[in-house]
Design a protein around this nucleic acid. Structure first.
Lengths: 263, 263
DNA sequence: GCGACTTTGTGCAAACGTTCACAAGGGCGT
DNA sequence: ACGCCCTTGTGAACGTTTGCACAAAGTCGC
């Protein structure tokens, strides 16, 4: 209990982990609403969202007491409450920087246009693309960032540009007034305080999968046997440079781009 | 301390949170190696990866004692150790199902081909695309999934197909022998035990950003004032159906696709 | 060869998140 | 109107993650 300003509930104290799950619940709720389900229990909703029902109830309790004991939650009402909490009752204009495959996929992404988000403009540096339209969205040059952001009151920017230009693009977005950034480029962005960066990194997810896949196949190959030479007995290597036992596959690196094709 | 089978270190006990950060460290290490930096301290590496140095040291200590006190970590050696831990010293053939913009972006993604992953094949249901090549990868029809998986020994599949077909595609992948799935479709996939699913959801990330953006602009508008009518005083609504105060923007839903264009 | 300096590796405590289990409370049948 | 039954909302236990702070240990200058 970290001593909230008020009754330790709802005023400003929703845990980050809960916030991250609200969109999941919202999606499940929409699916139920489409099937004309008026009311849902925590058990059903939890199953639909792929979480444990106790967790769901605790999460929802952070927003307030919107359920009815013995009955469940009114679907439409809960949709409204969760949407409001997430700030989706208003429309968010978004600027997408980088009109490669990823930028295009994002612009056409189903959940994008439909639930509170709108593509204000796309930005790309390729002169052949500037001036064209992608999925109904006009593509502007990088110099138009400031104008677009100001004009449409953009607060959210998505960076789908190559890693090499991600930081400079980010700087321009921030300077123009963007305070929330969704970064797809595989770099750590540096931003001033008060700017919120979220990262989506495809290759990190793959690497995590690879780890578990390796573990699975290792334990299948020789169950409860210890993995070959994990720890402890490396030659001490007196003179600074340690011998690298096996060279890691490493062709191109560092200059990894968020988008190798396109922009 | 949850009682490991062995010395409570390294044998099988690397925390999930650590695993999720290893790819980050690996990327920072590659960047350093490219600048011909032979040795790095936990402080520097932590800064490059955007984390706290104590956390980095604790994370690395789970792999073993690969640093030198008073000096730091040998970059090449650490790259090898981290790669091995993640299972990236071997090559992972990956099958991509859905050759829309997202699938194409993934196939061309920089971090994909270079660090232990290889696109074994792409799959799409569009007859116009089947048989063509995308980024050097041949596109097969859905009926070829089993053959491709068996032929190339694929263990990892990426689903970039529309949400409506995601579950059936997933079933086919699992039936063919895929045990790790990276899901881009906005649905909760149901899989048997032993199959690992990771989710990348663009719209969830956006919604989380929107939450924070809303909070920021709210507290800027009226600092330390309480948000208008958050909690507590809804009309009790005796007869089941509660009044919905304001209808949430809701045009199309449920049938949200991972990829609205393309496949 | 030795002492001062630097940086790793880690015990510990606090913060955070999850799960259990149950009391509180509302609906429904009689 | 009353009591049974069902589901929410939440206190409390547990597990995980973070961050501090420092001892252990290696290097480098002299």
């Amino acid at each position: 209990m970290s001593r909230r300003t008020r009754s330790d509930n709802s005023i400003q104290g929703i845990p980050e982990a809960t916030i991250a799950r609200l969109p999941l619940y919202l999606r499940a709720l929409y699916a139920l609403a489409d099937r004309d389900t008026a009311c849902v229990s925590s058990e059903e909703l939890a199953t639909a969202a792929g979480v444990n029902s106790a967790k769901l109830r605790k999460d929802l309790s952070h927003l307030g007491s919107y359920g009815t004991r013995g009955v469940g939650y009114d679907v439409d009402y809960l949709i409204y409450q969760v949407s409001r909490e997430l700030g989706l009752t208003q429309d968010w204009p978004v600027i997408i920087v980088g009109a490669g495959n990823l930028g295009r996929a994002l612009a056409n992404y189903g959940g994008f246009a439909t639930r509170g988000f709108r593509v204000a403009a796309m930005i790309d540096s390729d002169p052949l693309i500037i001036g064209t339209s992608i999925g109904g969205h006009r593509v502007f040059g990088p110099d138009e960032i400031e104008r677009v952001v100001t004009r449409f009151g953009v607060m959210i920017g998505a960076i789908t540009a190559p890693a090499t230009s991600a930081q400079s693009v980010c700087n321009r977005l921030v300077a123009a007034g963007v305070t929330s950034i969704l970064n797809f480029a595989p770099v750590v962005l540096t931003v001033p305080d008060g700017v919120d960066v979220r990262k989506v990194d495809l290759s990190i997810e793959l690497q995590i999968l690879a780890f578990h896949a390796q573990r699975r196949s290792a334990s299948k190959a020789h169950p409860t046997a210890e993995p070959p030479a994990v720890n402890g007995c490396e030659p001490p290597s007196v003179n600074g440079k340690r011998p690298v036992t096996q060279q890691v596959t490493r062709q191109a690196h560092d200059e990894v781009t968020a988008e190798a094709i396109g922009s």
